[in-house]
Amino acid sequence: MTFRREVARRIFAREFRESSHIIKGDDRYSPQYLLTPTGARCNRIFVVGTLLEKEDRGDGEFWRIRIADPTGSFSGFIGRYQPEALNSLADLEPPQYVAVTAKISVFQGETRTLPSIRPEEISASDSLSRDLWVIETARQTLNRILAMEALSTEDAKLAREIYGTDTSIYREMVRNALEIIKGELEFDREVEKDKVEEKVEKKVPGDEIIEDLEKFLEEEEFDLSDI
């Protein structure tokens, strides 16, 4: 038995939401995995998306959150057992880009199972990281789809057996996600072009920030010596 940190898998929200099959270990201490329709076996996931909602469900000690990606949204809960995430959540206000590393938990109801995430850490992010995450998740999802179509891995075979996965649906999901990123990049490029034309006689914005910071630090120092 060796201790190994569980890899954080990359799953789109829609595929995550459609997952219901849990793989349990031999005893109650072995890790649980959620098998997704394209055959990802995940215990932990990493997501960069938009924090849509944070809702206080218990005196600031228990929050329900929702994080969107281009395909849907992840539901999650943050409570006292996720102290780092609970602490970081205080500084976050939706809507905002966030990066999340989360464990997976599954509610098993009478009629259906609902997967949700338990963030270990959540932090402010940016649109670049979101784009990189979508492309990375698209690539890894596509790899799973290809493995499923070729039935080349055990998890792919198992997932097809359980979910009867129609891979064309997930191909379309991946394509749509990529198209959204492509569209945004093209839009950004147009905006950049306009900006460059405006900016000719202006200073680089970065310099101003640094100047401001230096001024701020100088003042702070002055204040301190006064005390």
Binding site: I135, A138, R171, V174, L178, E179, K182
Partner: peptide
């Protein structure tokens, strides 16, 4: 388990070539 860091940088832009390639395959 360890990666001893020699050089580390932020990824600063999207690899549009990869994006196009993925769109072709999917």
């Amino acid at each position: 388990r360890y990666l001893l860091v020699n050089q580390v940088d932020f990824i600063t832009s999207v690899d549009t070539e990869e994006l196009e390639k993925l769109l072709e395959v999917v």
